[in-house]
């Protein structure tokens, strides 16, 4: 084989491997998509071709499943969590980015560490406290604990964005007589807006997919979508067509959001350790 042939040969091998990997990545997702459009008869067979139906998407919103309630709960819980998290995180991120603070490193490590504490450890005392306060099975309770998981991501991510804003503009405005608060409002916030938006979407996805807190703290009124998946276990086994339809309702909006912010996903998850 000549050098060129060898190169071509390797190229074919590589492309084959890439296609196989992409196929393996997609197949469980595709399979859910197919199952969601199958009737409850077709879903119990390994069929690739079938007459699609939209019936499942209607059924999941009807009694006794009422997935609509869970959809509303998930949207409110994730949305309000983000609405609280982003402003709080932005203030902190600006301060960490622009000033030297006493105990700065300790604070940043602490914030980082909260992300790594197992959720099951955090939830035990919250369960006891919410039981006493009557906050079990409420959206408010869920929003409070969800702040715990999104806060570190939000702070680190927004800090990364603010670090990237050049200092000169801010300094120039200060020289012209603007106060620090004016500088933050008129210069930093507009420039950091895309970053705040990205961090908001990232946190929304995390809060939306959150499972353990909702499992422990809710049982009827405040149940979120991922916990709602458990509804589709019947006496005769799992109702796969309905499970799949619910699965699409959970994942499709997140796919769209994730694609919007895809460039920043890695940075957000590693909290700036990898850029």
């Amino acid at each position: 084989m000549t050098g060129k042939q060898r190169k071509q040969f390797w190229n074919v091998i590589q492309i084959t491997l890439i296609l196989i990997a992409a196929f393996i990545m997609l197949i469980p997702i595709i399979w859910i998509f197919l199952a969601a459009f199958k009737t409850h008869v077709d879903v119990y067979q390994l069929k690739l071709f079938f007459t699609p139906t939209l019936e499942n998407f209607g059924t999941v919103f009807d009694a006794p499943y009422n997935l609509g309630n869970k959809l509303i709960n998930s949207t409110i819980v994730a949305g309000v969590t983000v609405l609280f998290a982003i402003p709080i995180a932005t203030c902190a991120a600006y301060s960490f980015s622009r000033f030297r603070l006493r105990f700065e490193t300790s604070m940043l490590v602490m914030i980082l560490a909260t992300q790594f504490v197992p959720a099951v450890v955090i939830i035990l005392p919250f369960f006891v406290m919410f039981r006493d306060l009557g906050l079990l099975d409420t959206r408010l309770g869920l929003i409070m604990v969800n702040l715990a998981i999104v806060m570190p991501f939000a702070i680190w991510m927004i800090k990364g964005f603010i670090d990237g804003i050049p200092l000169e503009t801010e300094e120039a405005a200060m020289v012209d007589g603007s106060t620090r608060v004016q500088v933050i409002r008129n210069i930093v916030l507009p420039m950091a807006a895309p970053g705040l938006f990205t961090a908001g979407i990232f946190c929304f996805i995390i809060a939306w997919n959150e499972f353990l807190f909702a499992l422990i703290l809710t049982n009827k009124d405040a149940v979120t979508l991922p916990i709602g998946l458990a509804l589709f276990k019947a006496e005769e086994g799992d109702l796969w067509n309905l499970l799949s339809a619910a699965g699409i309702i959970i994942m499709l909006p997140m796919f769209i959001l994730a694609l919007i912010i895809r460039k920043y996903f890695v940075q957000g998850m590693t909290m700036g350790a990898v850029r």
Binding site: L26, I29, F211, L225, L229, M254, L259
Partner: peptide, 21 residues
């Protein structure tokens, strides 16, 4: 780009889908 998708999937749903598979 496709690689983002499994990552935006709720881990609970990944569990469900593998039980299905």
């Amino acid at each position: 780009t496709l690689l983002i998708l499994p990552f935006a999937m709720s881990p609970a749903l990944i569990g469900v889908s593998f039980r299905f598979m």
